[in-house]
Every structure is written in C-alpha cells, then in structure tokens.
Computed example of a mutant assay.
Amino acid sequence: MRRGLIWSAAGLAAVAAAGLFVTRAVPDETDGLAALTGDVANGEVVFIASGCASCHAADDAEGDAKRVLTGGHRLASDFGTFVAPNISMDATHGIGDWTLDDFATALRAGVSPDGQHYYPAFPYASYAGMTDQDVVDLWAFMQTLPADATPSAPHDIGFPFNIRRAVGVWKTLYLNDDWVVTDVPSPELERGRYLVEVLAHCGECHTPRDALGGLDRAAWMAGAPNPSGRGTIPALTPDELTWSAADVAYYLETGFTPDFDSAGGSMADVVTNFAQLSASDRQAVAAYIKALPR
C-alpha cells in the first residue's frame, strides 16, 4: 500500500510538472534586436498597418488624439469582455519603462515584462510573424508618442477564463509564426501576405474559431460570427467575394464598395488605417485576397 501511495504521488508530481511546463510563459527570441537601428518613418507605417490606435486610443478620439494610446476600448467575446490597456509612454500606467526586449516579447510572444501571459484578444498570434526590423522600427516610433496617465481598466471575464496560466495551453495549440498561404510567387503577393496575415491581422476577424478560440486555418478567411453577437464578419475567399483586385484596393482606400455601400463598424477603422498606407500596399493586399484558395 505504501509503495502504491509513493507511485501515485510520483505520478501526480509528474502531471503537475508537465502542466507547469506547458503553461509557462516563454519570452520572445530577442538576441538580434540590439544590433538593429530603428527607422521611425517605417515604424509609423507598421503602427498604422497594425491598427494600434484602433484599439488603444480612446473610442471618441479624433485626429492627433488617436496617437494618445490611453486604452479603454472594449472587445466582446464568448469568453468575456477584454479591455485594451494603456500602451502610451507613461512609465507608471503605460509602457514607458519597458525595454525593447519587453516590447518584442509582448508583441510576438504575448508575455508581459513580469512574466504573465497576455490574453489572445491582443493579436500576438498574428504579430508573431513580425520581422525583427519592423519590431525595432515600431518601438522607435512608439517613443515619439505622448504619455498618458490614465490607468488601464480590468478585463471583465469570469472563471475559468480569468486564469492567465491556462493561456499557456492555448499558446501551445495555436501560437506559431507559420504562414497560412505558402505559395507567394511574387514580391507583391509576399508583401500582401505579410500585411494580411501579420500586421493587419485580418484573419483574426475574418476566420472562424474553434471552441477554444483558436483560428480554424482550414477555413482561412471564410467568414466568422461577429464577436459582439451582431451579424457576421464576411468571407474574403474568391467563392464569396467576387470583387476585382481593383475593387478591393479602392475599398481599402475609400471605404466604398462596388455596390455603392460604405464600410461601417470596426471595418471603418480598418479603412482609415489602410487609406494612410501606400497605393502599392493596398494593391498587394488586394492581390493576396484574390489569390486565396477556394
């Protein structure tokens, strides 16, 4: 009986150790960052393409106020409501006391400076594919933005989803930097893939999710329920979206569809961002969309 208890205790200890290993917070690989010099101008492009202000500026912000990343935007989901934090340069309530390594680890690994998991409402699963140079450039641009002392609001999520350690299991299942579309035979398609799959994180809304909230990559860009519970996010696959590449590029610039409708809701923010990018970037996204399978 004593031997059985010993083996049982050993088994429980092994299970606990495995659980701690799987759920640990793993930092980003940052060894190459220190050798790079940040380009503020490109960092601004990365900031705009990534939609940082769309979540982290105050909901009523306009003009220059959209560069004050005070947080507060609420993101509804099946797991609760997540609230975007203050990521301004305030050292107390924002990220002003972070290092470049802290920033890269948050952005690409979803881990805070104190070693806690961020919830994947922060689209680090997409940003995981961001290049070292773009990370450094974005950080250089962030240094130019104003500080704001507004405290971050807490998330509104209940048990068991409020157990941050469990996010490590989610990351084991879903966090990687693999491309969804692997065949990109031209520089334009390569740029479009990077914009769609990484910076603009389009798949986070336009791709359905499984029961654990992971993207169903087998149904990439096939449309999904709106997390707010109102309607659906449309499919962008060629069998559903019949627009030409020129139509897509024009929509990203102006918000107007070929049917004379206009972008609304969160897509209006996306158009605001893409309208500030180059025409070649909008064309690259359109080319990628038209090259999707199905």
Rank of each mutant, 00 (worst) to 15 (best):
G4I: 12
G4Q: 10
L12A: 15
A13V: 13
A18C: 14
L20K: 13
F21N: 09
V26I: 14
E29D: 14
E29S: 12
E29F: 11
D31A: 15
G32L: 15
G32M: 14
L33Q: 07
A34M: 00
A35M: 08
L36E: 09
G38W: 00
G38N: 11
D39I: 14
V40Q: 02
N42D: 15
N42W: 03
A49C: 00
A53W: 08
S54P: 00
H56C: 03
A58F: 10
D59A: 15
R67I: 05
V68M: 12
T70S: 15
G71S: 09
G72M: 05
G72V: 12
R74W: 03
L75G: 07
S77M: 01
F79L: 06
G80W: 04
G80F: 03
V83A: 08
D97Q: 05
L100V: 07
A106I: 07
S112M: 07
S112L: 03
P113D: 04
G115D: 08
Q116F: 06
H117F: 08
Y118G: 10
A121W: 10
P123W: 06
P123C: 04
P123K: 01
P123T: 01
Y124W: 02
A128C: 03
G129L: 09
Q133Y: 10
D134H: 10
L138M: 13
W139V: 06
F141L: 14
M142G: 10
T144K: 15
P151R: 03
S152H: 11
P154L: 08
I157C: 05
F159I: 05
F159Y: 15
N162R: 10
I163E: 07
R164V: 06
R164C: 02
R165K: 12
A166G: 09
K171P: 00
Y174W: 14
L175N: 04
W179R: 13
V181N: 00
V181P: 04
T182F: 06
D183L: 10
D183I: 04
V184Q: 12
P185M: 11
S186N: 10
E188N: 08
L189C: 06
E190G: 12
G192P: 02
E197T: 05
V198Q: 03
H201C: 05
C202N: 11
G203C: 06
E204G: 06
H206M: 01
P208E: 04
L212Q: 07
G214M: 04
G214S: 02
G214C: 06
A219K: 13
M221N: 06
A222D: 00
G223Y: 01
A224Q: 06
P227L: 11
G231N: 07
I233L: 01
E240T: 07
E240Q: 11
T242E: 07
S244T: 14
Y250K: 09
L252P: 08
E253G: 09
T254R: 06
T254A: 08
G255K: 00
G255C: 05
D259T: 13
D259E: 14
F260K: 12
D261A: 15
S262F: 13
S262W: 13
A263T: 07
A263Y: 09
A263F: 11
T272R: 15
T272P: 04
N273F: 01
S278P: 02
A279D: 12
S280I: 09
S280K: 06
Y288I: 01
I289G: 02
A291L: 05
